[in-house]
Structures are given as structure tokens and as C-alpha cells.
């Protein structure tokens, strides 16, 4: 079946567009429960996005084209990345478009433009958000690369589909190097997706805002696109972790009948990842900005330990 990979690709793009808000809603729901609040329901992010799409856009008088272009670009990057990370099957026509390093760089271009948009209006908030975001990103990047390096030592590849297949072909994932890399990856995910303890997605307090400060001036459909893309990014980082560290269930045989099972596995893994995230977020408080060097430094250290343990133990 020549069309099979393309059907999977389209299916996957639909899943990321549709499921990312549900995943965000799931996290919010669990968080409400764990803090003894009533939750707004699983589908509240949908209602938020739809409401924002129907509202007028209000932008500052001196906003340039960069401010208006950024939401579309960020959204485009998220959709493209959604076509690259294997979720259901490794037969993805887009999978070869970018390996993990290029995928990280794709998120970096979205971040670059978001930071520029933060500077565009000329308020102190936007500049503050951009400055902090770029600082955190530059500390997270070496740790991320080290984690990729460690993982690619075992699988001899940085292509995501290939990594999944290597694990299927008998490579054990229970290795000390991968355990260290997983820990590092979790810390980096918290930083890259702006979760507690690095950034608080729910705050609008000037001293603690990072990502929210950059997009503070957005409204209407622009904000909807940015919020949606943000949810997709969180979803994709979870999927990235799943593909690299726990790929079981992702279909690699080219059999269409295995897809529903793969879908079920994906839902289960997402639910578990969401629960884990909520545990971290309710258990910890947000860190001071300058404590983050230690946080991301330890991510780097863990990834380096993973690399060393590969050379020493494996």
C-alpha cells in the first residue's frame, strides 16, 4: 500500500491538533483535583480556543509585522513538528525531514520569533519575558544536546523513527545511560515547555512571568494560535520522550490493524505522563530565576553521567 504512510501522516496531524488541547485539559483537571478544586472539565481548552478565535484582535499601535506574523509561524512549526515525531507508526513520510537536533532547532526558531514579538511593543514586560526566555533556553540547550548525544550512542542514530526501530530490533532500553538521559530529559522538558518549577503557566505576576510575559500583548485569534501551539509543544515533548525511552505500542510492521492498539497505548502513556507532570507541579514551588542555573546544570550533569556510564559500563 503506497498510500499507507500518507494516511498515517494525516491521521497523526489530526491527532496532534485535536488531542493537544485535551491533554492540556487533562493536566488542568488533575491539578484541580489534587488541589481540592473543582475542575472546568477535560474540554475547557477547546472552549477557550474557540472563544478566542471569535474575538476581535486588539494590538498596540506600534506593533510591526513581526508581531502579527509570529503566531502563524509558531503554529506552523508546531504542526510540522507534529508530523515528525512518531506517535502511532514509524512509517511517516515527514519523519526524515528532521532528526532530533533539527527538531530542537525548529522549536528554537519558534522561540526566537516569540521573543522578538515580546520586544516589538516596547513594554518592559515583553522585554523581560524575552530576556528570561532566551537565557533559560541557552542553559537548556547544552543539556538537551548532551541527552541526545547519550541516547544516540546506543541507537547510533538521531532520527526518531530509526531510534524506535532500533529498540524494537532488540536493543534493551534498561541501560544506565538511558536512565540518566531520561532524568535529564524530564528536567529539560519542564524548562522548554515552561512548567513549574521553571515557569508558571498560570501566573500573571510580573516578577515570575516568563513565557506569559512575552505573549502578554496578544489577543483574539493570535492568542488562540499561540495557546494552541503551546499545548501542541507540551504534547510533542511528551511524545518525544515516549518515542525515545518507551516506544512500546508504536506500530512498526506496516499493518493498519495495529493502529487502534497503538492509539490506545498512546492514550495510556499520555494519561500517565500527565499524572506525573501534575505530581511534579503540585509538589514543587516555582524557583527563583537565578536558581535555574543549578536546575539546568543538574540536567546537564545527569546527561553527562549518562554518556560516561555508556562508555564505562556498556
Amino acid at each position: 500500500m503506497i498510500l499507507y504512510p500518507f494516511i498515517i501522516e494525516i491521521l497523526q496531524l489530526l491527532i496532534i491538533l485535536a488531542l493537544a488541547p485535551v491533554f492540556a485539559g487533562w493536566i488542568k483537571m488533575l491539578k484541580c483535583w489534587s488541589q481540592g478544586r473543582t475542575s472546568p472539565g477535560l474540554f475547557q481548552p477547546y472552549r477557550d480556543i474557540i472563544k478566542l478565535f471569535s474575538k476581535d484582535v486588539v494590538i498596540a499601535g506600534n506593533a510591526s509585522w513581526i508581531f502579527r506574523f509570529t503566531p502563524y509561524l509558531v503554529f506552523g512549526v508546531a504542526v510540522l513538528a507534529g508530523g515528525i515525531v512518531p506517535m502511532l507508526s514509524v512509517d511517516l513520510p515527514l519523519a526524515a525531514t528532521a532528526d532530533v537536533i533539527a527538531l530542537v532547532a525548529l522549536f528554537a526558531i519558534a522561540r526566537f520569533f516569540t521573543a522578538l514579538a515580546g520586544m516589538d511593543i516596547g513594554t518592559a514586560f515583553g522585554g523581560m519575558g524575552s530576556s528570561r526566555e532566551m537565557t533559560i533556553a541557552s542553559l537548556a540547550e547544552p543539556a538537551m544536546l548532551m541527552a541526545i548525544f547519550t541516547v544516540s550512542l546506543a541507537s547510533k542514530s538521531t532520527s526518531l523513527s530509526e531510534m524506535v526501530q532500533v529498540i524494537y530490533s532488540g536493543l534493551s532500553v534498561f541501560r544506565p545511560s538511558l536512565a540518566f538521559a531520561l532524568l535529564a530529559f524530564i528536567l529539560i522538558t519542564l524548562a522548554e515547555t515552561g512548567r513549574i518549577p521553571v515557569d508558571n503557566p498560570a501566573t500573571h505576576l510580573e516578577l515570575t512571568m516568563i513565557h506569559e510575559a512575552m505573549i502578554l500583548e496578544y489577543s483574539g485569534r493570535h492568542l488562540a494560535l499561540l495557546e494552541w501551539a503551546g499545548m501542541m509543544k507540551l504534547f510533542l515533548f511528551v511524545m518525544l520522550g515516549v518515542a525515545v525511552f518507551a516506544p512500546w505500542g508504536i506500530e512498526a510492521s506496516g499493518d493498519f490493524a495495529a493502529i487502534p492498539a497503538a492509539f490506545l497505548f498512546m492514550i495510556l502513556k499520555l494519561a500517565a505522563a500527565g499524572a506525573g507532570l501534575v505530581l511534579i507541579e503540585t509538589g514543587l514551588a516555582k524557583m527563583r530565576l537565578f536558581r535555574l542555573t543549578e536546575f539546568l546544570g543538574s540536567a546537564f550533569l545527569l546527561a553527562t553521567l549518562g554518556m560516561l556510564s555508556y562508555f564505562i559500563l556498556e
Binding site: N62, S64, I66, A108, R111, F112, A115, L116, G118, M119, D120, I121, G122, G127, S130, S131, M134, T135, A137, S138, L139, A140, E141, P142, A143, M144, L145, M146, F149, F300, T304
Partner: peptide
Amino acid sequence: AALLALTGALAAACFVKAFGVTFLG
């Protein structure tokens, strides 16, 4: 490799600054 990654990310920060301060706001 990690230092090169750091360089790339810091360069991005630097050019957000250069472009943002010169051309935006």
C-alpha cells in the same frame, strides 16, 4: 558538542537582543 550547543543558543539570545533593541519597540 555541548559547548557548541551553548554557543548556538547564546547567539540566538544575542540576536534577539540586537534585532529587538535596534529595530523593534
